[in-house]
Design a protein around this nucleic acid. Structure first.
Lengths: 133, 133
DNA sequence: CTCATCTACATGCAAAATGCACATAGATGA
DNA sequence: TCATCTATGTGCATTTTGCATGTAGATGAG
């Protein structure tokens, strides 16, 4: 069931996200690495990264895939052979592979900044409250 | 010199960010933890987190601080005593302190997802190319 | 056969975040 | 006097994204 809310509780509207921005993009690229797939499948496979909630709406995923295709990072073909409605099957291009690689470098830096932040916070807590977490 | 470009090279326009979304918010809160400060100072102090480029424009920082104040997470007063132009000095409220704490929990989850992603990528590289990174 | 449901993809719209250009204004020193 | 630095802010356009909704073939129950 795609298109469901992402923010946990019911009637909250448009809550702040507080997660990695555009992280959907490298996730899709990595899922497509060495294994072609289609939007609806990718939506389900995103779970594998350990999100508590799906990090994006289905519409966002379809749009992201089209955006990747416009930038020649993935390519698509129609698969009408199998059961069910036709699917647009995406696969990674060589360029997309390189792009994924650059994303990984970026995410390593992000991890480092995150470490710095959390270390800094812990130090603060030790000084101000004698707590540690 | 605030207001400079953020994307490294010169003529590129509006490049994709590929970093943590809204990460500015917890950074500002942590910088204000136990030490009041003003926008222009905070802009410089952001370096301490190890960013390669400042993660936000000065206008974004000032707007973010106002937004935090509207949500009662920080409070401000005017400091006109010292040298130079008047500064709006912000300090963390109790509520803001709790909010920072919740941000930290969120960022720990983010760190975990990031680890999962990078591990998954490394595994792929080992399988597909015999490389490891 | 009919109809609800599931799978799959897509669009329209509005809200939110944010970069860039620019405005404002006091302080400072040449 | 005037350029420059510090400091805060606004206006505008672009990008991203959630939510609602549309379309359409496939599938199974009745």
């Amino acid at each position: 069931m795609p298109g469901r809310g992402r923010c946990g509780s019911e009637n909250r509207k448009r809550c702040r996200r507080r997660s990695i921005y555009g992280f959907l993009e490298p996730c899709l690229l990595l899922l497509l690495h060495g294994k072609e797939s289609h939007g609806y499948q990718l939506l389900e496979d995103l779970e594998k990264f350990g999100f508590h909630e799906v990090p994006a709406d289905s519409s966002t995923i379809y749009r992201m895939l089209r955006s990747l295709e416009e930038r020649n990072l993935v390519e698509s073909r129609w698969n009408e052979g199998d059961a069910g409605p036709a699917r647009r099957v995406y696969s990674l291009t060589d360029e997309g592979n390189l792009y994924l690689k650059s994303w990984v470098e970026e995410l390593k830096k992000t991890r480092h900044i995150l470490q710095t932040f959390l270390k800094k916070y812990r130090r603060h807590m030790e000084i101000f409250h004698g707590e540690n977490d």
